[in-house]
Amino acid sequence: MIAIETNQLRKSYGAHQVVKGIDLVIEKGEVFGFLGRNGAGKSTFINMLTGIIRPTSGTFSLLGVHGSVEKVKKRVGVMPDYSTFYESLTAFDHLKFLSALSGKPTGKQHCMAVLRSVGLDEHAHVKTSKFSFGMKKKLGIAQAIIHDPELIFLDEPTSGLDAESVLHIHKLIRDLKERGKTIFMTSHNLDEVEKVCTRIAIMKEGKVGKIGTMEELRTFYRSTLTVTVKHSPMSKGDQHTMMEWLQSVGTDVSAADSQVTLTLDHEKKIAEVIRAFNQKKIDVYRVSVDEPSLEEIFLEE
C-alpha cells in the first residue's frame, strides 16, 4: 500500500520556485530519508504534505486519501522543523492537549511511556519555558507520535541533539518501523540517514535527484570498487607475475608492504583476485572494500 504519493508537486513564492515538481511514491512501512542542503526545499515539501502550506500546483495523496489532508490528519504525526511550545504548559500537559486534539485522548501511562521513549520522562512536569533546544526537539518527536499515527513526518529530528540522545532517537525510529509505521524524515546528517532509512532521496534546488536504497544509490553513483588485499610476503618473481595479472583485471594497481590496492569494476572480480593469490600459495590475511559513502554520493549529486 502506498503511504505517500506526489504528482508534480510545486511551490512558488512569487517568481521564486522552491519546490519544482516532485514525483514521489513511498510505500507503507518505509523509513524514507530526504537529504538536501539548507534551502533545498525539504521543509517546504513536508509543509505542503502536512497542510501547513498549500502547494502552488500538483497533487498528492496520503495513506490512500487523495486531495485533502483534512481527512487523514488524525492518522498522521508531524514534527515541524521549528518547534515552539506553549510556555505555560508542561511536557505532559502538551501531550494530553495535543492527543485530545488529534481525537485520541491518552491516559497518564501512555503519555509517560511516550515521554520515556524520547528520554523526557524525568522532565514530564517541567514547563517547556525551561526546556533546552534539545529537550524541545525531543518533545517535538513525542507530540508527533502521541496519537499513534500510521504516517510520521520528522523534519530534522536529531539536529542539535547530543550523541546519546541521537542514538536514543535512532532506536525509537527503528522501533516505530518495526511497528509498521511509515516515517518520512529530513536530515542534514548523512550518517543518520544511512543508518536508519530504508530508502533515500537527495533534493537539490527544489528537485529530487536519484531515489533508492543505499545500495542502489551506490551502484548508480559509482560503478567501481577500491579493493585492498593484505597478504603474506611473496618472492620478487611472484610479485611481478601477480602485478601483471592484477593490472589485467583492474586499474590503479599499487603494491607496498605486503599490501595490494586496486580498483575493480565489479564485485565478482574480488573472488578472482583472492583465487589468484591462493593459486600462487600466497595467504590472504585481509580484504577490504571501499564503497562510496553517502557523503560522497551527496557531494557528487
Binding site: 502536512t50 497542510g51 501547513i52 508531524v78
Partner: peptide
C-alpha cells in the same frame, strides 16, 4: 507568530 499554530493545523481542521 509563535508557530504553535503548526501543532494545531496538522491535527485538526
Amino acid at each position: 507568530h509563535e508557530r504553535t499554530m503548526r501543532f494545531l493545523v496538522t491535527r485538526t481542521s
